[in-house]
């Protein structure tokens, strides 16, 4: 589904991704673990299409199509979804207005009809109930005054509504207490399907107890330095990332 080959990315003359290779298959849940600063968020932004990054080499293929040539909205319509590590506050834009605009924009891009208001509200309510998001939160401006955990739940709500085929979760567990972690993980697990793939970025292993990955990749200094099964996460938890330092020096 997603294939990244030899991706080299820099920002303001600083090399961040150094020939990164990664493949995620349909139906797979892949985890990326790595120390702070190893380039995990950069990778997620580059897949989603943030402008600030300069791609010097390599390619990103989604179902065989080169996403690097697409605008962020086109990538979204093609199925890419990024749950942000730090979701942004948008003063003056009501959450419901935002949700409806994004959902209809994607439907339009795919040649589908706009949702009727009752149908839209039904879908939002169903997703909000599952994620234990109170209705009055949806009446407020998007993410404005939301707690860290509420913002993360709001990201998953958007994911549930937009039904993307390739979901990137960037440190979705950070800032979540144990209950919120459970709710968010259940929300994500409910979306797991044979047609959908996930890239779960995390610094800690605890999220992976709830969202059990098929594969675990270790990222260091802008590269995937090791790939294994879910047991690799436990190993990292026990030993830390110290073992991978040499790779950087090499």
């Amino acid at each position: 589904m997603l294939e990244i080959k030899n991706l080299v990315v820099q920002i303001e003359d600083k090399r961040i991704l150094n020939g990164l290779n990664l493949t995620v298959n349909k139906g797979e849940v892949a985890a990326i673990m790595g120390p702070n600063g190893s380039g995990k968020s950069t990778l997620s932004y580059v897949i989603a299409g943030k402008e600030d990054y300069e791609v010097l080499d390599g390619e990103i293929l989604l179902n065989g199509e080169n996403v690097l040539e697409m605008e962020p909205d086109q990538r979204a319509a093609a199925g890419v979804f990024l749950a942000f590590q730090y979701p942004l506050e948008i003063p003056g834009v009501a959450s419901m207005t935002f949700l409806k605009a994004t959902l209809n924009a994607q439907r339009k891009a795919r040649g589908e009809d706009e949702l009727t208001t009752p149908d839209f509200i039904k879908r939002v309510n169903a997703a909000a109930t599952q994620l234990e998001i109170p209705k009055d939160m949806l009446k407020r401006a998007l993410n404005v005054g939301f707690s860290g955990g509420e913002k993360k739940r709001m990201e998953i709500l958007q994911m549930a509504l937009l039904q993307p085929s390739f979901c990137i979760l960037d440190e979705t567990d950070s800032g979540l207490d144990i209950d919120a972690l459970r709710i968010v993980s259940e929300g994500v697990n409910a979306l797991r399907s044979a047609d959908r793939a996930f890239l779960v970025i995390t610094h800690y292993q605890r999220l992976l107890n709830h969202i059990v990955p098929d594969t675990v990749h270790v990222m260091h200094a802008g590269r995937i330095v090791k790939t294994g099964g879910k047991e690799l996460a436990l190993e990292l938890e026990a030993n830390g990332y110290a073992d991978y330092r040499e790779t950087e020096a090499a």
């Binding site: 989603a48 299409g49 943030k50 402008e51 605008e71 962020p72 909205d73 990538r75 979204a76 319509a77 890419v80 979804f81 990024l82 942000f84 979701p87 942004l88 948008i90 003063p91 003056g92 834009v93 207005t97 935002f98 605009a101 994004t102 959902l103 924009a105 994607q106 891009a109 401006a141 958007q158 937009l162």
Partner: peptide, 22 residues
């Protein structure tokens, strides 16, 4: 903010419009 809105599927002009309205 524009990137956030576009990453959710809004074309650039629509993303701009939403922010101008706000």
């Amino acid at each position: 903010l524009l990137f956030y809105l576009m990453a959710r599927g809004l074309p650039k002009k629509e993303a701009e419009s939403l922010l101008v309205q706000a």
